[in-house]
Amino acid sequence: MIRVSHLTKTYKTGEIEVRALDDVSFEVKKGEFVAIMGPSGSGKSTLMHLLGALDIPTSGKYFLDGKNVADLDDDQLAEIRNEKIGFVFQAYNLLPRTTALKNVMVPMIYGDVPREERTKKARKYLEMVDLGDRLYHTSSQLSGGEQQRVAIARALSMNPSILLADEPTGNIATNQAVEIMKILDGLNQKGHTVVVITHENEIAECTKRIIYLRDGKLEKDEMNKHRRELSKITL
């Protein structure tokens, strides 16, 4: 599903060359629930950009469903993002003054999904994240947790290969954060591959496997033996 080998990314700021990601290799199989952990500056955002096909590596290879993403041009990357990756951002990034339904439809517009099917699917995914009664609310009329749920519905709309969540609970109150993690867990149980980027231990502990980054290098990659059972957390 995902295979990165010797992935390296360097940024040049003036004279100084910063190696944000240094020779990182790992594999994620279909149906996994992975957390990428590390303190700030560890390179996890850079890794997320590369995994999300938002950027291309300086060297190394990134295979997504057997295709080397490192070789693609801008428009091909856009296509990959549209079809294979579902983004959930820390700041939700919904279109302002736009209804939940319309927000969920955006990727489907770019993916040429016919109009009727678009509406049907958007409705279905919003119902899946328990927002069936909020279809016509605009982002400013929704709470942080609700906005993130709209974002998850949007991420699911093109039925992507991986769900890439970048600090999905970073801006959200704790009780709603658990809700979001429960949704991600539920999606994983249905067979979705979920990758969560986080610096919070509690969030990482909800996943099945944790990859630790430090100073751009892969420090540790292990199965999570002390997994918090999300279904048992009650509020």
Binding site: G52, L54, D74, D75, A78, E79, R81, N82, E83, F87, N93, L95, P96, V106, P107, Y110, G111, R154, M158
Partner: peptide
């Protein structure tokens, strides 16, 4: 700018 970035992240090609 942010909106444009988001649209591109969600799959909008240059010409769109």
């Amino acid at each position: 700018t942010r909106e444009i970035g988001l649209r591109k992240a969600l799959g909008a090609k240059k010409k769109i």
